[in-house]
Design a protein around this nucleic acid. Structure first.
Lengths: 341, 341
DNA sequence: GTGAAAGCGCTAACAG
DNA sequence: CTGTTAGCGCTTTCAC
């Protein structure tokens, strides 16, 4: 049986109120009394019952993070780093982090409703936003504190951190054009995902500005895995004539493309340029190393967590809209000049 | 202001006890009364306050998972899949999952003490066990429910799921020997990690049984990242004579080794065999595809979670010690015969 | 400076 | 079958 405030109070011959005050550092306790209480608490190994504290305070001291869609073979190198950033930041502020998945076969919104309506958490982090995002609409309509990683096409503004995928892909495409490429293919993921929507726009803008035709044959949509990238890459390499460069919406997909090139006997880094987005750690170790756009995932995790705590604790966020610029990392997979036709 | 049991009771002219019973499905409520209550609850959008329920029941309905050591650039493709398994299983049983990291600069045990002593969770999942594991000793001494992924050299037995790394590496090494290799190098990680300890033992046993000498020159210790694998691979390839095969303790390391081979102009799949352990999704897409030992990570996550819930709910676990056999997946990185000397 | 007492919202024993 | 009551362990007025 754990020691309670009551036990301590009885032992010391004071009231529970005094003990509570002394331990919480509230004013109005004689220094001498406080000392005695703190000492006894130490000696008796007193630990507050967080459940009781929470019920009384009507706060959970917990933030929530609902992991976006999940299959058995979900594997995202990206995700662990984001979680590390969030988790560490939460821990620093002594907040618990509740992680939830959508149980197999369950509606996604149910997880959100549980969190919000049953008040399991004080605030939520939303990631991988969609253009029209019911989660965000729901949270807004319930005035529930949240911060998103990613923007979305919502009526009301909301606090977010995002990486400027449009600008990033623009610069990357521009880089490829400067290297002499004219047939630049693009592997996109679902346009319903906000980041995907922005990224492909950057690609299109760069083509336009360079006066290059937009060729629907060179656009393929794939799922967000290396396996899917492999398939999409193969499909693109069968085009006639084939592209001389392939941009993938994510590094994971780009790694799949490199596998596909290998399987087709195409040499990445001389016959074909390949580039991705994210700069996962494997990008620099691929053969050849992969050109990509780096986003500071760990720092983003920290930032969205800190912003959410700001919102919860102070009711407002000093700098609620943050758009970060990704850094173009040119590596051997694109660092060669393609001979002009 | 959310609707409480009290509000409902007053509205319906019954007592809170009756409402509580009706909603929880407890016996002893007239069918007609129950119907009225359930209807009203629905209509008024009643949601139980989980904090109050927990305080009263003295259970948190939450399990905890403390993520092992974490740097800013922590990135483990492996980990997201494990978390998916755990999270989905917890959700199915309506348990919350509390994920905690060790805040930067804090002792690891502090996170465990918080969880246990402040009763934030009903049980814990421990992963990446160490030979001598203070976390496990601590949990045992406090009689706190937990299940581990991995064994350890503890006095008292404890429930775990593990993959037989010794047997796996034995079979893999045997496979390489059968392919004609005689100089088989091994990249290990810290021997303090239980899985690492077992894996290298399988390698040694296979060498012994084949009558091959054990050459300390061919063993290198590395950290658990692709970058470290790259460095270790380079070091091994500089040996004189170099190994004809390299086994890495993990796939991530093996991928780094393949990068190193590339950088040294060594052809993996003909000059050099490389193999790993885990079967992460990138293994099959490497160039050439990587031979490895597959462990069913998602299923392991589900299983340790289910076992923990069994322990919490029933006090005991039907099958508390589970040792799974990894599956040897032979791919092109080792699937060639090395000419005998 | 300290104590008594009233809850936070819920469950469960005990009566009726 | 239903209501009354007593907590779960803590914080926080309000008196003294």
């Amino acid at each position: 049986m754990p020691v309670t405030l009551h036990d301590l109070a009885r032992k010391l011959g004071v009231s529970v109120a005094t003990v509570s005050r002394a331990l919480s550092g509230a004013p109005g306790v004689a220094e001498e009394t406080r000392r005695r209480i703190v000492e006894a608490a130490e000696a008796m190994q007193y630990r507050p019952n967080v459940l009781a504290q929470r019920l009384q305070k009507q706060r959970t001291d917990t933030i929530g993070f609902i992991i976006p869609t999940f299959g058995p073979r979900f594997s995202d190198p990206f995700f662990s780093e984001l979680l590390a950033g969030i988790g560490n930041e939460a821990a620093v502020h002594e907040y618990d982090l509740l992680v939830s998945t959508r149980p197999p076969g369950e509606e996604e919104m149910i997880a959100y409703e549980r969190m919000v309506q049953e008040r399991r958490v004080d605030g939520l982090l939303v990631v991988r936003t969609r253009r029209h995002d019911p989660r965000i609409e729901y949270l807004q309509s319930h005035h529930f504190p949240f911060v998103a990683f990613g923007r979305c096409e919502a009526e009301e503004p909301f606090p977010y951190v995002d990486v400027d995928g449009e600008a990033g892909m623009y610069r990357l495409t521009h880089h490829l054009i400067a290297k002499g490429h004219r047939r630049i293919a693009y592997i996109t993921v679902s346009d319903a995902l906000m980041f995907s929507h922005y990224r492909i726009q950057g690609y299109r803008r760069a083509l336009e500005e360079a006066g290059l035709p937009f060729d629907a044959e060179l656009i393929v949509e794939a799922g967000m895995s290396d396996e899917e990238g492999f398939r999409a890459g193969q499909a693109l390499l069968r085009r006639e004539p084939p592209p001389t460069a392939i941009i993938a919406a994510t590094d994971l997909i780009a790694l799949g493309v490199m596998g596909a090139a290998e399987s087709c006997g195409v040499q990445v880094g001389s016959d074909l340029a390949v580039a991705g987005f994210d700069d996962i750690s494997l990008a620099s170790l691929a053969h050849p190393p992969l050109t990509t756009l780096r986003q500071p995932i760990y720092a983003i995790g920290q930032t969205i967590c800190r912003m959410l705590l700001e919102r919860i604790l102070q009711g407002t966020i000093a700098e609620p809209y943050r758009l970060l610029q990704p850094e173009l990392i040119v590596r051997a997979s694109t660092d060669f000049v393609y001979p002009s036709e």
